[in-house]
Amino acid sequence: MSWAGPEDIYLSTSLASYLDKKLLVLLRDGRKLMGILRSFDQFANAVLEGACERVIVGDLYCDIPLGLYVIRGENVVLIGELDLEREELPPHMTRVSAAEIKRAQKAERDATDLKGSMRKRMEFLDMD
């Protein structure tokens, strides 16, 4: 049941039509959550049941179970309805374990960090 006020329910842009459906929620920090919408309000605060985070690194992905989540509306970018008839991801992507995706994430982070620190060294050399 939703506790949104009447004006929210009748607003056609409300999330009412997404209640009890499996959704993808994109957050401002780039994270992708999936779960079933159980409640929302006018700020787009949302309650997701059976939530999981879908982590994607290159062609690898993993769904990490999270449980019941209340998401603060401010951090919501987009809420999309998942078409259950369609493949959720392109066929070339491979599901891996949580441990493996964490390793891949770290490798990706290290590569960007290296690029940044090399640039800093170059800047230092440019000084003279």
């Binding site: 994607i56 309805e81 078409d83 493949e87 959720e88 991801l89």
Partner: peptide, 10 residues
């Protein structure tokens, strides 16, 4: 790629 099966969105 995660947007592949999204047909409508808020």
């Amino acid at each position: 790629p995660h947007m592949l099966s999204v047909r409508n969105c808020f």
